[in-house]
């Protein structure tokens, strides 16, 4: 079989590649999961211990920081490209570039997000139980709301948009690291900050150009609400995240296909 479709994608081969990645990196993934679990638990517990009535806003703050971690995790995909020897091994694995990209996306974006949601849910319940037990032992009266994902949905304007932005940043790092050979992750993060800085300056420039009331190094954001209840800025962020998603995929695929030693 040497049809263009078979060359690019074959389910059995892709599953073999996925199996290979999960087996080869199982220790690393387990350490990351365990680390995320412990850090999440401690962060939630600390935040609960300092407030007598812990509400959804507390959960949201920790959730947001966790999402940043998820973005960095997504950006750390293609681990073999950290060293020349492992780069060669990875490039020579009998699978297409498309399958390799798809496997990384599944592990680092899809499974990463699902594991994050699960870990956060367990951590939130465990931390609440611990905090209540400690408070009871100290005869303190505290109220900690039970965590439900619906409370994020209700209180945080558009968690989906935020998730999209975080994963878009992850994808951006994911695609960027394929441009560099040495210290790819560090360079990708630097480029990300530079890009953000340039974008911010551009926005400041536009704000001064179109809104005379803009002061200093600030961005003027008009808070129009659209018919569907979304603020203009939310739609803008959504569109930007979609653009990053749409450009990062083909860019990552092209760079992976053209990757050399």
């Amino acid at each position: 079989m040497n049809t263009p479709l078979h060359r690019s994608y074959h389910t059995k081969r892709w599953l073999g590649l996925l199996n290979s990645d999960l087996r080869l990196n199982s220790k690393r993934y387990l350490i990351i999961l365990l680390g995320a679990f412990v850090v999440g638990y401690l962060a939630l517990l600390m935040s609960m211990r300092s407030i007598t009535h812990y509400e959804s806003s507390g959960y949201i703050t920790v959730f947001m920081f966790g999402l940043i971690g998820l973005g960095f995790f997504a950006g750390s995909a293609f681990q073999p490209f950290n060293h020349q020897t492992t780069t060669a091994d990875y490039l020579l694995l009998p699978a297409s570039s498309f399958e390799k990209l798809l496997a990384q996306i599944l592990i680092y974006v899809v499974l990463g997000s699902l594991c994050y949601l699960l870990i956060f849910w367990i951590d939130a319940h465990l931390a609440r139980w611990t905090a209540l037990a400690i408070a009871a032992a100290q005869s303190k009266e505290v109220v900690i709301d039970l965590f439900r994902y619906a409370m994020l949905w209700k209180d945080m304007a558009l968690p989906l948009i935020i998730w999209m932005v975080v994963i878009a940043i992850g994808f951006y790092l994911f695609a960027l690291r394929l441009f560099f050979k040495r210290y790819a992750f560090v360079k990708s993060v630097l480029v990300l900050f530079c890009t953000f800085g340039l974008w911010y300056c551009f926005m400041v420039g536009l704000s001064h150009l179109f809104f005379s009331e803009t002061e200093g190094f600030m961005i003027h954001i008009p808070d129009y609400k659209t018919g569907n209840g979304l603020y203009l800025v939310e739609i803008y962020v959504f569109v930007m995240a979609c653009c990053v998603w749409l450009t990062a995929f083909p860019l990552a695929y092209y760079k992976l296909k053209e990757k050399t030693l």
Partner: peptide
């Protein structure tokens, strides 16, 4: 082109 069928038949020990 790193065709998977090609890669299946090449092994390199660096």
């Amino acid at each position: 082109t790193r065709n998977p069928n090609f890669l299946e038949d090449v092994y390199m020990i660096p």
